[in-house]
Computed example of a mutant assay.
Amino acid sequence: MGSAGKSTIIRHLKYLCTTNSNYKYCNEDWSEKKDDENECDDDIWKNKIRENIINAFDIFIKQVYKNKDKFESEELEVFAKSLEHLYANKSEIPSVEMSDLFREHLINLLNDPAFKKALALKNKIQIDEPERKPFDGLSYFLNEIKLKEVFYTSYIPTEEDKIHSRLPTVEVHRYYFMLNKTKIEIYDAGGQASERVKIFIIKIY
Rank of each mutant, 00 (worst) to 15 (best):
Y152Q: 08
Y187A: 11
D58M: 01
L86Q: 04
Y187W: 12
M98F: 12
S99K: 07
I156A: 03
K203V: 14
I186K: 08
W45E: 01
R11D: 09
P134H: 05
E131A: 06
I163Y: 05
N89H: 15
P168E: 11
N123Q: 12
K90P: 11
K181P: 03
Y187K: 12
F71T: 06
F71E: 02
F135K: 11
K34D: 13
I53H: 00
T8V: 15
K122W: 05
V170N: 12
E149L: 08
Y87K: 15
N180A: 14
D35R: 12
V64P: 07
A120W: 05
F141H: 04
E160G: 02
G190W: 00
I163Q: 04
S194E: 12
E39G: 03
T182R: 12
L16D: 13
V197E: 13
L13I: 07
Y65L: 05
F60A: 05
D43S: 07
E32L: 02
E131C: 02
N67T: 09
Q126V: 06
P94T: 04
N108R: 08
I204F: 09
N38P: 00
F151S: 00
I145C: 02
N89T: 10
P134C: 04
W45P: 00
W30H: 12
D41G: 12
A189V: 02
S99P: 05
Y140L: 00
Y140Q: 01
S95I: 14
N123H: 09
M178D: 10
A193E: 14
Y87I: 08
D128N: 13
D161P: 11
N20V: 03
E160K: 07
I59Q: 08
T19Q: 14
D112C: 05
H85K: 09
Q192S: 07
Y176V: 09
A189K: 05
N143S: 10
L121T: 13
E84Q: 14
I201S: 07
S82A: 11
A120N: 14
E92G: 01
Y155E: 10
S99W: 03
V170L: 10
E129R: 15
Y152V: 04
V78F: 10
K146T: 14
I202G: 08
E72N: 08
N143D: 14
K133W: 12
S91T: 08
E77Q: 14
A193G: 05
E28F: 07
H164F: 03
V170G: 13
V170H: 09
F71V: 02
W45G: 01
V78M: 05
D188G: 05
Y87S: 15
L83D: 06
E159P: 00
D29C: 12
Y25H: 10
S82G: 04
L121P: 01
K33D: 07
D43Y: 04
G2S: 06
I184E: 06
N22W: 08
P130W: 02
N89V: 06
E39F: 13
P157R: 06
I156W: 03
N38T: 05
E129P: 00
N52G: 04
Y175M: 10
H85Y: 13
I125D: 02
T8L: 15
Y187P: 04
K183H: 10
F71K: 02
S31F: 14
D41C: 13
D136P: 01
V172D: 04
D35G: 04
M178F: 06
N47S: 14
D69E: 14
V172K: 08
K48W: 03
T8I: 15
